[in-house]
Design a protein around this nucleic acid. Sequence first.
DNA 1: CAACTCTACAACCGATTGGTGGTTTAGACT
DNA 2: AGTCTAAACCACCAATCGGTTGTAGAGTTG
Lengths: 114, 114
Amino acid sequence: MAAAANIPHPLPPLVVEIVATRFRALGEPMRIRILDLLRDGEMTVGELAEALDTTQQNVSKHIGVLQRAAIVGRRRDGVRTPYAIIDPTVLDLCGIVCGGIRREAEGLADALGG
Amino acid sequence: MAAAANIPHPLPPLVVEIVATRFRALGEPMRIRILDLLRDGEMTVGELAEALDTTQQNVSKHIGVLQRAAIVGRRRDGVRTPYAIIDPTVLDLCGIVCGGIRREAEGLADALGG
DNA sequence: CAACTCTACAACCGATTGGTGGTTTAGACT
DNA sequence: AGTCTAAACCACCAATCGGTTGTAGAGTTG
């Protein structure tokens, strides 16, 4: 919450656009799964495609979105082109959302159990 | 980061879907602006429509998305139906994203200035 | 009851998006 | 040079989405 304290209000239009774009980059199951895999370390497009049981083209497309959003980056390693998470805040974001989901689920379980 | 520590890995498919849905609900400028206004307190659809210079139907549609994502809720107050943020974690999310944007902008400014 | 206010719903249109198949580029090796 | 592999680019299709218009429902006030 401290980070939100000194945010301008109302939000400037350009900031609104950037924020929405960043959230939209995370608003796709395939991209969440890609980031979930990249939590363990860098992977190539081919490795991701195999792990996610989809095509190389599909992974390339989705990881392109994540790269344009400056969430992941790539490097050259001989014949490989491994991708890695370069913006660690996305893990915080996912952690907050997952925590909220867990809290809701527990509240629902309590309501049903008690 | 502590919240992300005890997240299952790999993420279960259902969780992936829920996380993506929640992020997608935030991936629209108009919805970010609605939440930005609701930071100051509850507002009705009509008030939001006027403040955002759009139609009542448009606000109703977008706030329906936010409500189905359990981000906002409504109550009855006589003739009014004010909406309010019921999931305070979304403010944390926006704060993190805005902080990241600021950090990037400052880094870019330093790179150009120095 | 009737008129009014506020909100939700449905249909439509244009634009965007996810996924696929095919092709092309860029390196690494012989 | 030629070949192989990995990754990106391209065009396409079906589905979804944002915004608009028109309408219907729910509640209040006379």
